[in-house]
């Protein structure tokens, strides 16, 4: 063998050895490189508060032995409420290729959460690990999501509607539409304009009667805590008034609340907005009434709407299968009052 050939074979051998060492080294140092992948994790901004959070793998999984022996006292996965940075009590359920993270109680509305994974809680059926690791072999993954809502208008209307994106990730049976709960039974407004009586100009006077539904009063949850009435036109607020600390927790709660204003406009139309809030100052129900420009001295408006679907939740699939229900939902509620969220299975 010539010296040149020997040199060539030596170089080839070195290359083979280096590659082999690298492959074997990779196998021992980072055994997960050949393992399963996470295909999808719940990452929506619009998760339903009673939905599980799901980690989807590309193969069947099971608890690791350490967790399987005591599945309620696991470590390695935590769900953090980002609003106060506190953990939420959860349980874990491996199900086929999915790991379901199930909160012990409903999540809070309009809240940011983060699912943090810091250890191998589950593994593939052949015992290989399924969660990605760093160079040191540690797991450190976090997946944020929120429990905000979309309005049906945002979902469906306009060139920036979200329906296409949502349908890419969720089926129509996983998209939920909720009709708002209703607390107001009837509204009666009397607006008396200025007039001249016996040579004297009288002031304009407006009265608003708000009649509540029975369940708004006889509800031990004490939902309604504040009623606010705003007289406005566009962004201009003419006057507003409110009743505070109602705490309608007992049968003694009144059913009728009335508000009075003077000097509201006579020579232009204006709106009266009625807002009901709970003790967390979350909006429960609202109505908007128009006092049109009118040549009559007195304008009366009586508004008593029927809400057959108030508080009910439908899947989008159900509504498309029963267009009558969808039409009723649209007739009873403004598009931006219908809230949309998604749920994992």
């Amino acid at each position: 063998m010539s010296e040149k050939k020997l040199e060539y074979h030596s170089q080839k051998l070195i290359t083979v050895v280096v590659v082999t060492v690298f492959i074997l080294g990779s196998f021992f140092i980072s055994p997960n490189l050949a393992s399963a992948n996470i295909e999808k994790v719940t990452d929506t901004d619009y998760l339903k508060v009673d939905s599980p959070i799901v980690i989807q793998f590309d193969q069947l999984i099971r608890f690791r032995a350490s967790v399987a022996s005591s599945p309620t006292t696991f470590t390695g996965i935590t769900l953090i409420d980002q609003s106060n940075n506190t953990p939420v009590t959860i349980s874990l359920v491996p199900s086929g290729t999915m790991l379901k993270v199930i909160p012990a109680t409903n999540l809070n509305r309009n809240t940011d959460y983060e699912l943090r994974i810091t250890d191998h809680v589950v593994e593939a059926l052949d015992g290989s690990i399924v969660l990605p690791t760093n160079r040191s072999g540690n797991v450190n993954e976090s997946f944020p999501f929120s429990t905000e809502s979309l309005s049906f208008k945002e979902l469906m209307v306009g060139s920036n509607n979200k329906i296409k994106r949502l349908v890419d990730d969720y089926t129509l049976r996983q998209i939920y539409l909720k009709a708002p709960e209703r607390y107001i039974n009837q509204l009666d407004v009397i607006h008396k304009r200025r007039e001249v009586v016996q040579g004297q100009a009288t002031e304009s006077v407006t009265n608003i009667d708000i009649s509540l539904k029975d369940h708004a009063i006889y509800n031990t949850n004490g939902d309604i805590n504040r009623i606010e009435v705003i007289a406005k036109a566009g962004n201009t607020v003419f006057q507003k008034d409110e009743l505070l600390n109602l705490n309608l927790t007992s049968n003694s709660g009144a059913k009728l609340y009335d508000f009075s204003f003077t000097q509201l406009p006579d020579t232009r139309a204006f709106d009266i907005e009625i807002l009901l809030y709970d003790d967390q100052d979350e909006l429960l129900d609202s109505r908007l009434i128009k006092i049109p420009l009118d040549t009559n001295t007195i304008t009366t408006v009586k508004q008593k709407d029927r809400f057959k679907l108030a508080g009910r939740t439908f899947t989008f699939y159900d509504l498309l299968a029963k267009p009558k229900d969808l039409q009723t939902l649209l007739e009873e509620n403004r598009l931006n009052e219908i809230k949309v969220q998604v749920g994992e299975r």
């Binding site: 406005k232 036109a233 709106d271 907005e273 908007l288 403004r334």
Partner: peptide, 18 residues
Amino acid sequence: DTDMHYEGNNVYSLGLTG
């Protein structure tokens, strides 16, 4: 023939199916 919802500021809206 279906009442439209009042949105405020002289604007009315309604969703219809079909």
